[in-house]
Design a protein around this nucleic acid. Sequence first.
DNA 1: CGGCTCAATGTAAGCGCTTGCATAGCTATG
DNA 2: CATAGCTATGCAAGCGCTTACATTGAGCCG
Lengths: 336, 336
Amino acid sequence: MQTQPNPTLDDVARRAGVSTATVSRCLNAPAKVSGKTRERVMAAVTALGYTPHFGARAMAARRTHTIGAVIPTMENAVFARGLQAFQEGLHAAGYTLLVASSAYDPVVEAEQVRALVARGADGLLLIGRTRDRALTDFLSARGVPALLAWVVEGEGVSVGFDNRAAMRALAEAVLAEGHRRIAMISGLTTGNDRASERLAGLREALAAAGLTRAGLPLEEVPYGIETGGAAFARLMEARPRPTAVMCGNDVLAAGALAKAAEMGLRVPEDVSITGFDDIELARIVPPGLTTAHVPHRDMGARAAEVLIALVEGGDAASVTLACPVVRRGSLGPPRG
Amino acid sequence: MQTQPNPTLDDVARRAGVSTATVSRCLNAPAKVSGKTRERVMAAVTALGYTPHFGARAMAARRTHTIGAVIPTMENAVFARGLQAFQEGLHAAGYTLLVASSAYDPVVEAEQVRALVARGADGLLLIGRTRDRALTDFLSARGVPALLAWVVEGEGVSVGFDNRAAMRALAEAVLAEGHRRIAMISGLTTGNDRASERLAGLREALAAAGLTRAGLPLEEVPYGIETGGAAFARLMEARPRPTAVMCGNDVLAAGALAKAAEMGLRVPEDVSITGFDDIELARIVPPGLTTAHVPHRDMGARAAEVLIALVEGGDAASVTLACPVVRRGSLGPPRG
DNA sequence: CGGCTCAATGTAAGCGCTTGCATAGCTATG
DNA sequence: CATAGCTATGCAAGCGCTTACATTGAGCCG
């Protein structure tokens, strides 16, 4: 499809009457070139519409100023928002972001990581911390630093929050209202440490309140409004019914809320519902969703800082952010 | 940071006792190599954990199997979803997707387009069709095909829908209910042809119904739930009040809906509200949002097909998808 | 059994850029 | 005025890969 060959450094050099080395310096270290020459070169650059060839540059410079990120899916607003902030931070520092999605599949994730490394990513942003040894080894052999986000430090540097503690705090708020029959709708926990940590947090809180572990009705379903609604309906078939349904994320909770309305159940009088993430949705679904606030944008911005430090300097410390409980209308005392 | 140099073709070749050419052929055209050699080479590849260097490959092969996409923002679910489908389609065909976002700024968009081309994108996906001459010229000079999505064909190939016609159809439904005092909350129209086309569609319908153009109260606000709510509040200060508020997208409409509830206005008894896009939200905000259904996933998938055809074959036809009106509780006849 | 074909492999020339080193043209110094 | 010390530039060697072309060695024909 290449109709006319793209202009190269050589074309620019010829047109400006200098060597390719000078042109290259003009572009990468303008201070090393005299004012007059620089002007002439820049004129040639714009006249020709020259754009440096990325592959060639990466090859010669062994540096790409590119950061790769592998996220589970772009369809989840939570990642989209964090990533947007992340990319703004990178852009400001002169880095470009390459995004790939894994569809929550570790095999695909590994593939994508390799693809990004092959593309010359100087560093990587990864979500969560469940991943296999081979991948970590691969990255360290290649000398590509990776930052883990959405979790707290396991091994390696991370920027994130403690999913378990946040969920436990939320559960404590629910218990404090007087709820004893609590059920949970969790996202799929297989290969998803955020989901399993949240579940674990709830179990810890229940145990601490003297409620037996066996007593937690649980539905584990894929991410989605529909699936959340369906899971809610199943949980509400139990007699006696749970008085509170805690969800692994806001989207599941929104589904539960919608289904409750459809079933003629009042929230929170007949049943309390909680979410996790605090996406915009949480504010607008009536009566407002009580949830754990995850500072997505802040996390993305901090992640950019830390990863750049890692890439350029060599080391940087992990950051742990707080996830306060946000109380809205969906949580109230059990009736009776 | 590169602790150990990455293995190169040469390392693999040496280890397998063949030339680099043979290794390259093994990877790119296995049929040209004898079975025994291939096994030996593949063994060396895995033993060394070899990954081809992307830049080098792009340089030598003048082809990257990479498609770039520039979207306004990842935070808009609408693009996220379309893009997810797009990327799945590309992946299946062996292409990789590079995503960049422009924040609705044409200058940034142009930058990103150039960056993607410099990175060797074989083709580009662009949203909408308002863009300046220089950019189109640049792309055609470089021989990089671009596909426009979310719109119908202007010049160039597109995969999308007719924003104006869809909005007109929606407006006709509103008029058919008997509404005559209609207001609009539009997204920012500057540099956003989707938004301006939708507005134009509404105006056409009003004109066709004999309502004067001057009679359309209009709020033009940035994308967001909050901004939609605030705009709604302003529109409802008019006396007599509008009986129907049509919004440029579902997110603005969700904000309007939430604000209506907060103001104690019943929907649709006191005021009807419509959206555009039909995102998940539209189904769950009570009483359900009447909106125009945009087939995002389908659009993404078709876009992948068409763009690949463009890149590989050279030409392909535009695709126009229908956007049926979806009726939900938020639209009813005006009271009285 | 010579000669031809064809499949499998090797040789080597780039692809477009960066960068260490050499060079040239100055000015400041003794 | 010769010399040292700069700065601005050029030269040329790769970076890791693909691919046209050359080479080799079978297998097959008459």
